[in-house]
Design a protein around this nucleic acid. Structure first.
Length: 864
RNA sequence: GCCGGGGUGGCGGAACUGGGAGACGCACGGGACUUAAAAUCCUGCGAACGCGAGUUCAUGCGGGUUCGACUCCCGCCCCCGGCACCA
């Protein structure tokens, strides 16, 4: 290692030392404030990527900082080890998912250790470990007992590539979240968790989370999608049962001129029976069933429908109105049927125009009139009711209450709430996941596996393929079991659980990772929970982060934990990005595939360079942390990730930026090495009141303590914290150790103090290097056993202030004044300043604004 | 369309609660050291005008409030992310 410093040796040495001393092992300690710091655990894909480095570097700085601040810090790590990539790898490399996963974990663990992350490895958990998934199965059974886990046949999202069902949260814009291929709808039986039972609590609980970013809360709020309105029963002539609809706009009821059913609505076909429309309605429903539902219900799809031939009675106008079937009405939402108010709903308007259905205005704008025969679009805003019988002239909002009251009084309807949130489909037709602990018996039906028989072990000897359904179904020794109730031959459930189930409670397990009589040990979990700070990517805003909140509430209701919300504070870090090289012919290129003339080496076309995009294999703009580690070491990697951008923003990779961080650390090494002898000798403390020559440096060090502490603690502004450390390092570098005769001791004291402070403050960011230098200076303990420095606000305050003098708001002069200067003295000094008086010639002073300790603004009466 | 986050030098980014815009770093220019280069050190670095002291302009655009606006208010433009026929 020629360049800089021998980071390899330093890192190896200290990593071994921390491991041997068990520096990061923690236990409950009621005497100390606890802090549970957690980063989202990784999927063991094979090797860590820059996103991990950034995520875990942020967490590790926090962990080390908080320990030095005196907290009892739980900082664990584990593996989200179940999931489809292991099966794909198994097929591709002819290996077993378990082997592939275990090897990946082993390698990635060494990588994390080489980054110097301070985890308590005694608490490591792997969710493909039977000791872990046993308790996932246990929780499943508890949910089943409480009616929160159930099986049903339903239309589900199916990914052809993954050969499995996906949860709603795993479909993004009609595409599979993992491979971005189109998702299709399929009728399939599967297991669901009743997350909707907690919809309201999941919604209102967001208000109790001031430490969460707004955008995540907004995304969850939108996802839960609460709508307040009413269910209204529209009588059907000649039928006992009315047609019930849900609306949020009961104020527009008088404008309901027809109704629309979802094609899957049970009445869609029965209502048309015996009418002249029967054939047409039947054909339409059949066609809708064949069409892809995601396309059919997309926002930009053309509205289509057919008349059923039947009529309902508008319960307020008592008019007979036609019932239609429409492609855009969803069975799953509300009651699967709507009243159509074309005057006040754009979708209904388009439908009415297309099929020449009547339009009657129900709500008009406050300040103008509308003619329903002459509208070119619906009036959807609030307004004043018209054509609405006794409610005419009421404001929308008031009318909604009045009409809801009326509906309830007359027995026509009830107030109602609807949520967009659907139950969480957790069945996966794949192998590498937690087996669902259920047995099907011809005699006894669906039988839960008895608790004593847990875990249901995932068999090892399985042929994995992406064809012919769940691989577990082909393992006879797994499938065929005696019924736990009657003993007769029965069959196991062959679906496994969504891996998001595993990650919905892993943070609880870390508190008591080896508990063997339950998923958690209440005394331990209640000491550590909630997670005080959670750090991870925003891509989990409505996936993991919603499921984990749901599980926390369920487990609380089981009486195992005492918290309502799992994560008190959440930091969503930005992505790691890098520029891409794109050839119009060959797509994304590696930098080395581009010639010096910015042309593609393969075809000679001009290559588009400079688009900054998230690092990804497919865009060929990956930086392997392994290379970073080899060339610059872990400390540089950490400092770069934290310095280049504030954590919540995207980080743009820059080779020069890394170089800069490396230079900074090298400078620190030089700073210490050049004065090593001197720094090793104990210096005699000089009280601040007597400090003269070293006063400025001492103060700078204290100011840096304040800045770094506040930056790290309050806002995670690691970038500005590091810049403050750079400033201090610069000032130390320029400090004159000799000065005037007689000042040496004082200067030595200030210098030593500043260097010590610098090393301690820097140690969470660059732990290996700081430990090394600390030791080289002969300081007796590990730097991480040092208390975080404090500062004295009297020291920090400069005894001189620089007063800015403005004339008419423009800076015209600067004057040094004693810090305790009064307003009147500031005013006088400002008016006496030479440069200022020049500006004041021929102008009259109209007013003088004095900002204490800071600035004087002289306002003049006009031009000269 | 709705919701959220942004827009500041060549670049990444600073700026407390309305008070010196551009901290810190990168890139770049000049200089020192060197036979030379690298490394390191010193120095300059928003733009325009000026020999210079300095002056004017400048935080997406247009208005406003204020002694004073990157910061507050009104109206627009652009970029990124999320949701999107949810009745």
């Amino acid at each position: 290692m020629a360049r800089g410093f021998d980071f390899k040796a330093i890192e190896d040495r200290w990593q071994r030392s921390w491991e041997e001393s068990g520096a990061f092992t923690v236990a409950e300690d009621p005497g100390r404030a606890k802090f549970y710091l957690l980063e989202m655990y990784p999927y063991p894909s094979g090797r860590i990527h820059m996103g991990h480095v950034r995520n875990y570097a942020i967490g590790d700085v926090m962990a080390r900082f908080l320990r030095m601040r005196g907290y009892n810090v739980l900082h664990p790590m584990g593996w989200d080890a179940f999931g489809l990539p292991a099966e794909n790898a198994a097929i591709e490399h002819r290996t077993h998912p378990a082997k592939w996963t275990t090897e990946n974990i082993a390698y990635m663990r060494t990588q994390l250790k080489r980054m110097g992350f301070s985890y308590d490895w005694n608490r490591e958990i792997t969710c493909s470990d039977p000791e872990y998934y046993k308790w996932g199965q246990w929780l499943f059974l508890k949910l089943y007992e409480k009616g929160l886990a159930y099986k049903k046949l339903s239309a589900v999202n199916w990914c052809e590539v993954c050969q499995t069902v996906l949860a709603n949260e795993q479909v993004e814009g009609g595409l599979c979240w993992r491979d971005e291929t189109p998702v299709v709808q399929r009728e399939l039986p599967g297991w669901f968790f009743k997350i909707t039972a907690y919809a309201e609590e999941l919604l209102v609980g967001l208000d109790q989370l001031p430490g969460w970013p707004d955008r995540v809360k907004v995304m969850q709020r939108n996802w839960i999608g609460k709508s307040v309105g009413a269910e209204v029963r529209f009588p059907l002539p000649d039928r006992e049962q009315p047609l019930t609809i849900f609306t949020t706009r009961q104020d527009t009821l008088f404008g309901a001129t027809f109704m629309i059913l979802a094609p899957e609505h049970p009445l869609a076909l029965t209502l048309s029976k015996g009418t002249p429309q029967e054939g047409k309605a039947h054909a339409f429903v059949q066609r809708m069933k064949r069409e892809d539902k995601i396309l059919r219900t997309a926002a930009d799809a053309e509205k289509e429908g057919v008349f059923t031939g039947a009529y309902a009675i508008n319960p307020l106008t008592h008019e007979r109105i036609p019932i239609w079937i429409g492609n855009f009405v969803l069975l799953e939402y509300g009651t699967g049927a709507i009243m159509a108010v074309p005057s006040n709903d754009q979708r209904d308007f388009e439908f009415a125009k297309k099929y020449a259905l009547p339009i009657r205005l129900a709500v008009k704008p406050l300040d103008s009139d509308l003619d329903e025969t002459d509208m070119d679009r619906a009036y959807e805003e609030e307004g004043v009711l018209v054509n609405s019988g006794p409610f005419t002239a009421m404001a929308s909002q008031q009318a909604r209450e009045a009409i809801a009251d009326f509906l309830e009084r007359e027995g026509i309807g009830t107030r109602a709430v609807n949520y967009r949130l659907r139950d969480w489909g957790i069945s996966r037709q794949r192998y590498w996941g937690t087996p669902i602990p259920i047995i099907y018996c011809d005699q006894c039906g669906t039988v839960p596996v008895p608790y004593d028989d847990l875990p249901v072990i995932l068999p090892q000897d399985v042929e994995i393929s992406m064809k012919g359904g769940s691989p577990l179904g082909k393992v006879a020794s797994f499938v065929n079991v005696p019924c736990p109730r009657c003993g007769r031959p029965a069959k196991r459930e062959t679906d496994t659980m969504d891996t998001f189930v595993d990650s919905s409670w892993y943070f609880l397990r870390f508190a008591s990772p080896h508990a063997h009589d339950g998923p958690v040990t209440p005394s331990q979990v209640n000491y550590w929970m909630p997670v005080d700070q959670y750090i991870g990517g925003v891509e989990h805003a409505v996936l993991h982060l919603l499921y984990a909140r749901f599980f926390t509430k369920v487990i609380r209701d089981l009486g195992l934990i005492a918290v309502d919300e799992p994560f008190t504070r959440l930091l969503t870090q930005g992505m790691v990005c890098k520029e891409t090289h794109r050839c119009p012919e060959h797509g994304f290129l590696l930098p080395e595939e581009v010639g010096a003339d910015r042309r593609c080496r393969a075809c000679g076309r001009q290559v588009e360079i400079g688009r900054i995009e998230k690092m990804s294999k497919s865009k060929k703009n990956i930086i392997d942390p392994e290379d970073l580690l080899a060339h610059y070491g872990a400390d540089t990697a950490r400092v770069f990730c934290l310095f280049a951008a504030p954590p919540e923003r995207d980080l743009e990779w820059s080779e020069q930026g890394v170089e800069g961080s490396f230079r900074f650390l090298t400078r620190i090494v030089r700073l210490v090495e050049e004065r090593e002898e001197l720094l090793r000798c104990p210096s005699v403390p000089v009280p601040f009141s007597r400090l003269v020559a070293g006063r400025a440096l001492y103060r700078k060090a204290q100011q840096t303590v304040k800045r770094v502490t506040e930056d790290v603690e309050k806002e995670f502004h690691f970038n500005t914290a590091i810049s403050a450390l750079m400033e201090l390092a610069n000032e130390i570098g320029h400090f004159d150790l000799v000065g005037m005769p007689g000042e040496e001791d004082e200067r030595r004291f200030a210098f030593t103090y500043a260097v010590d402070v610098l090393l301690i403050l820097l140690s969470p960011f660059a732990p290996h290097l700081c430990e090394e230098l600390w030791e080289r200076l002969g300081r007796d303990r590990s730097i991480f056993q040092m208390a975080w420095p404090t500062y004295d606000s009297a020291v920090i305050k400069a005894e001189e202030i620089l007063m800015v003098v403005q004339v008419d708001g423009k800076v015209r002069g600067r004057v040094f004044l004693p810090a305790d200067v009064g307003e009147e003295a500031m005013r006088e000094a400002a008016l006496a300043d030479e440069r200022v008086t020049a500006w004041l010639q021929d102008r009259s002073v109209k007013r003088v604004v004095v900002v204490p300790q800071k600035l004087v603004n002289i306002v003049t009466g006009g031009s000269r």
